[in-house]
Write a protein that binds this DNA or RNA. Structure first.
Lengths: 236, 236
DNA sequence: CGGCTACTTGACTGTGGTCAATTGGTGTGG
DNA sequence: CCACACCAATTGACCACAGTCAAGTAGCCG
């Protein structure tokens, strides 16, 4: 059940960073990576662990989270095929770099692992690629700011509305049937991604349903009023 | 009342990015910058404005914030001499880049402004400097994560405690008198930096005082029990 | 002295977190 | 094939943290 090279190539081609470099550079980058196959629920690294390197998702799902002392979870990111994570410590003080959060698979997954040393040597030899990396980091930073904004300036309902709107495919393949968001993660994780708990998420979903903005059934969420949702997520 | 070259040199030398490059590179970088002197309360750019370039603080204070539709403020950053801000959009899609937040001076300030085009050409000609930039961005990202963590996992009192602990100078110049944090910004800004409102900050300060962890008087906050504060900010 | 702003304090309210019980779906074993 | 166990999700009751509104105080400048 090894992954095919096409899958790897596919994931890399769609990647913000890997997709931006030349084909030859990409080829030599693949050489650096080690394939890791892990089952659902595996912890790749934990908050505070000594930094080893970063990952690229080929198949599966990974969530990056932090835990409060009391055990509440805040999900920073849910990573899907073609996305990479944990590059941040690459460029910090080398000696005692640690992972800033915990990474755990939400499904059986195939990952490409890039050891810090090897990757840094590559960047060192190809300084131009650092620019692509900067683009990547900038996006992350902007996303972090939006998340921060959302958590402290919007209530749960608005955050949920925003999240749903962002999930809706921009091009509607069928103008009549309402666009549908299929949840491929447990609701508890979505809750933690919105900075809340499952109970509150449940009530927020119900509340949006009562307002006829969505129709929710198990992990299928049909958006019946995209405009209304968008408006809710912007204005108070 | 123009700033001296020493002040500029000083600010740059202590900067994470500018301080990391060679002296000659730094010299040519100064050439790129334009000095701007602005009085307190000036808005340098607003959330959504077309991106022009980034700033380095020589003297004064600048806060970077976002506003909710209802007008509540979230302060992302308070910038002091030797710090730079608004580099993020440099490396994003060039055509329609915008500022992700608003920047306003909290005091009469002197800034060095770097136009995007010129600076990018420099990085292009000196790709190695991109690595320093990456280090810079990484720190930002990590800070953003900690802020996110704080806002959604800690209550106001804990966030305040953490903030105060971080302000305490690491080396105590006098072992007997308690370390003191001098607020150089209005409390309303500190409140927004902690993701709350002035009233709540006021109560949080009082509450820490009642616990004999601090002694607060106007903008002087004496830390009487650093250990206790630290503990409060970690554990629930 | 008057008026302005920053900050504080009090009373009230609401969002959302906690705890607990219930439902529902899924997989395992008798 | 049903029974049971287990986990995810929902619902209800309760409560507390913190935001709002309003009044009051203190400091500062004209």
């Amino acid at each position: 059940m090894a992954v095919s090279d096409e899958q790897i190539e596919d994931a890399m081609a769609h990647h913000d960073f890997f997709g931006g470099v030349t084909a030859e550079a990409r080829a030599s980058l693949i050489e650096l990576g080690r394939v890791r196959e892990v089952e659902s629920g595996s912890i790749l690294f934990q908050h505070g662990d000594r930094y080893q390197g970063f990952y690229l998702v080929i198949t599966g799902t990974v969530h990056i989270y932090r835990l409060s002392p009391e055990g509440r979870m805040l999900v920073l990111h849910v990573m899907r095929p073609g996305e990479s994570f944990a590059e941040v410590p690459l460029f910090e003080e080398r000696a005692d770099a640690t992972y800033p959060a915990t990474a755990e698979t939400l499904a059986d997954s195939t990952l490409l692992f890039f050891p810090a040393e090897a990757f840094l040597s590559f960047v060192d030899a190809n300084p131009r690629t650092a620019l692509h990396m900067l683009g990547q980091m900038s996006k992350r930073l902007r996303k972090a700011v939006r998340q921060l904004d959302a958590v402290s300036l919007q209530d749960v309902q608005e955050r949920l509305a925003r999240h749903l709107v962002e999930q809706v495919p921009t091009v509607s393949d069928d103008p009549d049937t309402p666009p549908t968001v299929e949840l491929d993660i447990p609701k508890s994780v979505l809750a933690a991604e919105l900075g809340t708990v499952p109970e509150t998420l449940s009530r927020a979903l119900r509340s949006l349903e009562d307002k006829d903005l969505i129709r929710s059934e198990a992990s299928e969420i049909a958006i019946t009023d995209v405009q209304g949702l968008r408006q809710l997520s912007r204005e108070g």
